[in-house]
């Protein structure tokens, strides 16, 4: 069958293009302009060339923040994806408990990010918070405002609490879409639970899990509000991720040039990962 090509349909996307131009492309162009200049305020700029990029690329502070960012993202993916799949597998497939489970799973996702940070800040305080007080009462010395390991533990736990539900809901949707005939065939072959998971459920969940990994990667790589409200990047710089460091440079120190160069590098990393995931997803669809 011959397809009809009509490029006039592209006019339909013109409003979206204008919207994107104003809320994304023009600000991005401005950031590029800032990244090659120095300013002392009053809208006065001095051209510096690629100086800020070199400074950022050779800055131990940037390397440390980037390392923390990758470590945080790796931890989040290694915990949330398997945990989300396990919870989705444990959820009932039919009956009245399905709705109860789905509502319970959706609840953390409805809470605004800054509220999650504030909740966990109070929850983890060593003197009055349930988690902090409980751990100390159990003999485990815990103070997330003083101990870097405790701060990391709290930040990761908070993110797992907030976002594992998303993976659960996506994995559950994937599981529900598997026709019963596959399970019947597995029963006829006396397949073990592991074989059913390995050869039926996991391949059928591949697409939703790719989306889950992509979403969780993006969110955790750009995380800002929750750790900022919980720890403020501390103790010291222990939980200063890339986004927090960027805001510190731009608003705290008014280093707009360095912050803009950091933003562009950050943007390029995000773009590369998005492209890799998009390519993997579309390649899977073609196969």
């Amino acid at each position: 069958m011959n397809k009809t090509w009509n490029n006039r349909a592209w006019l339909m996307v013109l409003p979206v293009l204008l919207l994107v131009a104003f809320n994304a492309i023009i600000p991005l162009m401005t950031v590029v302009n800032y990244s090659v200049q120095e300013t002392f305020g009053n809208n006065l700029f001095f051209f510096e060339g690629v100086k800020w990029y070199q400074e950022v690329l050779n800055s131990p502070r940037f390397h440390a923040a980037l390392g923390r960012q990758f470590a945080f993202t790796a931890m989040i993916l290694l915990i949330e994806i398997p945990l989300g799949v396990a919870v989705a597998l444990a959820m009932p497939r039919s009956g009245p408990w399905v709705s109860v489970c789905l509502v319970l799973m959706a609840l953390p996702l409805l809470i605004p990010w800054n509220v999650v940070g504030a909740m966990w800040n109070i929850f983890a305080l060593p003197d009055i918070g349930l988690l902090g007080y409980g751990l100390n009462a159990a003999g485990i010395e815990y103070n997330f405002t003083r101990q870097p390991a405790a701060a990391w533990f709290t930040v990761v736990l908070m993110d797992v609490w907030h976002w594992t539900s998303l993976v659960v809901l996506l994995a559950y949707a994937g599981l529900r879409s598997i026709p019963d005939a596959y399970y019947q065939a597995a029963r006829i072959d006396s397949a073990s639970a592991w074989s059913v998971f390995r050869f039926i459920q996991l391949p059928k969940m591949r697409r939703v899990l790719t989306i889950a990994v992509l979403l969780r990667f993006m969110d955790s790589f750009m995380v800002y509000t929750e750790p900022f409200v919980l720890t403020g990047g501390g103790p010291g710089n222990a939980t200063t991720f890339l986004s927090i460091d960027l805001v510190k440079a731009a608003l705290g120190e008014f280093n707009l040039g360095i912050a803009a160069a950091m933003s562009i590098i950050y943007f390029l990393m995000t773009l590369l990962v998005c492209w890799v995931f998009y390519t993997l997803m579309t390649k899977g669809e073609e196969q």
Binding site: I26, T30, V32, N33, Q37, N43, F47, G49
Partner: peptide, 15 residues
């Protein structure tokens, strides 16, 4: 467009 802090180098890049 002065708020966008244009330079001829970045303008060339985008052009």
């Amino acid at each position: 467009l002065t708020w966008m802090a244009w330079t001829w180098q970045t303008a060339t890049f985008f052009a």
